[in-house]
Design a binder for these strands. Structure first.
Lengths: 195, 195
DNA sequence: TTACATACCGACCACGCGGTATGTAAATAC
DNA sequence: GTATTTACATACCGCGTGGTCGGTATGTAA
């Protein structure tokens, strides 16, 4: 056949890119169709409507992407240094555009949580997964850390700051502020160690 | 006359509320007109277009509101405790809806920075003002603080975390996560003191 | 009273959007 | 070889939006 799965995948990936760059609402189907070089009929053959396309992007693109990104950072021997390396690599390796574009999870959280319940629950689930991932791996090395630490609280704190910093760099359109905040975040994280 | 200034002010305030709750793009003029009980002609008499209305809301409502909110928190004798009290008061006094709704500055930053240059520059300016406000007041009590502190970096860090936490609470639709992050933020802030 | 500017009204418009209905060619089943 | 289903393509529709424009009521100054 004309490889339906490939068509579907192409639509998903380009949609993911568009949604990441423009947000969900501002992303127009016609724009996706042009980039994919498929017709509206093709899109509506694979997805019930725009919302379902959005959900599919979240589940099939963003979610695995996210876990693949964070897991190695935190499942390393020393998660403290793992996280610091991860964040540091982010502003040294990522282009300015990528950083200014922001994290898809945070972007969608800001845009869609209050508008659509389906998105909200998916986002919430992802955030909880991410939080557990970090909290568990910090607990794993609890003996090296200060003894007054609430692991879940610290995990949420780290993610909050990270998301806040990418939000901050949107208005300055460069990664200087992102770098500043991330550096301070590394200070904070390293300070979790007992000394 | 029919008090043009009052009409203008009413449009500004209701627009500010709508933009805060729905975002700028999702805010429809017709909705504003209904709530204001004025005609489209009245609105376009006072504002050139939707964008200019948005700018006016930012400059005449959000900016002063923001400064009045943060200044007392940080211009107090002990800005460390001032900030902690400020944040703590935020999750004890604010309703769940208010917190979930998020900070107008952060919301607009996320939504409009990448789309419209006029918004971006106004937001950037506000962020820099806020950063200076915090940094200067921390420097004011530098003798009580650790001596390895980059004041600007710390100020950006604090605001980032604050904004990140309000973003976080959008998906959970309650203020528990907000509270968690803010508590950890207070731990961090108090830890700036030398001991 | 005249002349004019300000403040406001409401009908109308073009546009782009998400979504649908109908048609058709390719692949599969029988 | 034929029937049926799958995988698209295309033309079309209704709706809500920001924005315009001719007209009108209200105030002010000559």
């Amino acid at each position: 056949m004309r490889d339906a799965e490939l068509t579907r995948q192409k639509i998903l990936e380009i949609s993911a890119d568009e949604i990441h760059k423009k947000g969900f609402v501002a992303t127009s189907l016609s724009c996706i169709l042009v980039r994919c070089e498929v017709s509206k009929g093709a899109l509506y053959h694979h997805f019930k409507n725009k919302m379902e396309l959005g959900y599919a992007v979240f589940e099939e693109i963003y979610t695995p992407m996210f876990l693949e990104l964070w897991q190695p950072a935190v499942e390393v021997n020393d998660p403290i240094e793992g996280l610091c390396d991860f964040f540091t690599a982010m502003y040294t390796n990522s282009s300015c555009d990528e950083i200014v574009c922001g994290c898809p999870l945070n972007n969608l959280c800001q845009e869609m949580s209050g508008v659509d319940e389906g998105f909200r629950l998916r986002i919430l689930n992802m955030q909880q997964q991410l939080n557990q991932l970090i909290a568990i791996n910090l607990q794993r090395v609890a003996n090296q850390l200060r003894d007054d630490i609430d692991f879940s609280q610290v995990a949420y704190f780290i993610v909050s700051t990270f998301h806040g910093s990418s939000s901050l760099s949107k208005s300055s359109k460069n990664k200087d502020l992102f770098e500043k905040v991330i550096k301070e975040l590394c200070n904070y994280i390293r300070n979790l160690k007992s000394h």
